[in-house]
């Protein structure tokens, strides 16, 4: 992967996600404090930070798996409110990949992929299956289409999960620690899929501690701690010249 190519933003400069002065509490606990973030079309952002810093919560707010209590989140021109129509619209446009894959164990791989397109997008079954096979090829797992999720390895399941999201033709992909539940030898196959996705110009927000991935793919790295975005920069600046003491501490712990 050529960092130079990745560094170029093939972007028209309209933001696809705008988060303004967003706060969230779990009961009394203030998880997200005044978060401001603008994501451009085609931009790739890696979010890192110690556990409990609110990074997962932040991206889960973007497709309303968590509800924010103050501030605004606008995704592709639609503001997230309590309006169910808006929420469902945004969810169809925002793909999400989970730490624990969350494939549907009672459905075959192929059915996992066609479910969303058929029921939400009302795609004809045949077309949905063709598209599913296309993306399964892309994540190099087409021969497993008739199997059930539990028959696959972790890395394979995560690749299926990515393909499942892609079948909805999302504008943005959110990744919530996609490799942290995987055995070490399976991390690479998932990262490779994500890198090829990046090369296709997908807008990506990735919560991850895979610093190699961040260096080669991200336009921007965010460091979160205590519910705030403490620091953000290009990967080169971020890793070579971290500004904040907490960032330095975190990097020293993680890069050992």
């Amino acid at each position: 992967m050529n960092p130079q190519a990745a560094g170029q933003k093939n972007v028209d400069k309209t933001p696809i996600i705008t988060i303004e002065n967003m706060h969230k509490w779990y009961g009394e606990f203030h998880v997200l404090k005044d978060v401001n973030l603008t994501v451009d079309r085609g931009e790739r952002i890696v979010i890192c930070g110690p556990s409990g810093s609110g990074k997962s919560t932040l991206i889960r707010c973007i497709n309303r798996l968590e509800e924010h209590q103050r501030g605004r989140i606008v995704v592709d021109g639609t503001e997230l409110t309590n309006d169910l129509k808006n929420i469902e619209k945004i969810r169809t446009e925002v793909g999400m990949v989970f730490q624990h894959f969350n494939l549907f164990p009672h459905l075959t791989i192929l059915e996992n992929l066609t479910l969303g397109p058929i029921w939400v997008r009302k795609t004809p079954k045949k077309e949905a299956e063709e598209r599913a096979m296309y993306y399964l090829e892309k994540v190099r797992i087409a021969e497993q289409a008739k199997k059930f999720p539990n028959q696959l390895s972790g890395g394979q399941q995560q690749r299926v999960a990515i393909a499942r999201s892609l079948c909805m033709k999302p504008n943005v992909m959110l990744f919530d620690e996609p490799t942290s539940a995987l055995d070490p030898e399976m991390v690479k196959e998932v990262l490779d899929v994500m890198i090829s996705l990046a090369q296709d110009g997908m807008t990506m927000l990735v919560v991850s501690h895979e610093m190699g991935f961040a260096k080669s793919v991200a336009h921007r790295v965010l460091f979160m701690d205590g519910g705030e975005i403490l620091e953000q920069n290009t990967p080169e600046e971020f890793f070579n010249y971290p500004q904040h003491d907490r960032t330095k501490l975190f990097l020293s712990q993680i890069l050992d």
């Binding site: 798996l65 169910l84 169809t92 969350n102 009672h106 969303g116 939400v120």
Partner: peptide, 26 residues
């Protein structure tokens, strides 16, 4: 598993679809 609800929601399935297709069968 909570994750099943979340995966169903994040695909944009509404409540009835999520229940009928994902949650209840399991």
């Amino acid at each position: 598993n909570r994750g099943q609800y979340e995966a169903a929601e994040s695909l944009g399935l509404n409540y009835f679809q999520a229940m009928r297709l994902i949650i209840l069968p399991q």
